[in-house]
């Protein structure tokens, strides 16, 4: 079936099998940051932003994104450079193997859009659907708060404006 949507700012029109998952669709389009860690919504490594909200791409059918806006980790950085979340994860040591990192970035981006200055507890709630086996989450949680601080000091974001782009 025919499907059209926006992926990382560019419009996509493509044919897709009616039973295809969103994860398959996106990986097939080269967005391989969408990781297949469990294929049943438990690990969060396939998380993408769907109209700004982080969802598990493995549990959605491709057809569900018709007309919607998708952002993956590939689309987080812009021409100026890495997104503050990406920078903060690197600086804080929040990346070890990096397999869960794209999903963490998506969940964190969703969180920061709703909660620009999250407490540690709010960060933990926001990332509770993302499994990381390497870090114990300490440096990831710190990084999300660091990124929030970076964003607050860098750009006076108008209320309701989207974080990053895409």
């Amino acid at each position: 079936m025919r499907l059209s949507f926006t992926l990382n700012g560019g419009s996509v029109e493509t044919d897709v099998a009616p039973g295809a998952t969103l994860m398959e669709l996106l990986r097939g389009l080269g967005a391989v940051s969408v990781k297949d860690g469990c294929a049943r919504g438990d690990c969060g490594s396939c998380a993408v932003l769907l109209d700004g909200r982080a969802v598990t791409a493995c549990l959605l059918f491709a057809g569900q994104v018709e007309g919607l806006r998708i952002t993956t980790a590939e689309g987080l950085a812009d021409e100026v450079g890495l997104h503050p979340l990406q920078q903060a994860l690197l600086e804080a040591g929040g990346v070890q193997c990096g397999f869960c990192t794209p999903g963490i970035l998506m969940a964190a981006a969703d969180l920061l859009e709703r909660e620009p200055e999250p407490t540690e507890a709010q960060v933990r709630v926001g990332l509770a659907g993302n499994l990381c086996r390497c870090t114990g989450y300490v440096k990831i949680v710190e990084a999300v708060q660091d990124a929030a601080a970076m964003m607050a000091s860098a750009t006076p974001v108008a209320e309701g404006e989207e974080v990053g782009h895409g």
């Binding site: 598990t56 959605l60 969940a107 969703d110 969180l111 509770a128």
Partner: peptide, 11 residues
């Protein structure tokens, strides 16, 4: 607030 994770609650 206790159902699944944010990722699930969003869809």
């Amino acid at each position: 607030a206790q159902v699944g994770s944010v990722l699930h609650r969003n869809s």
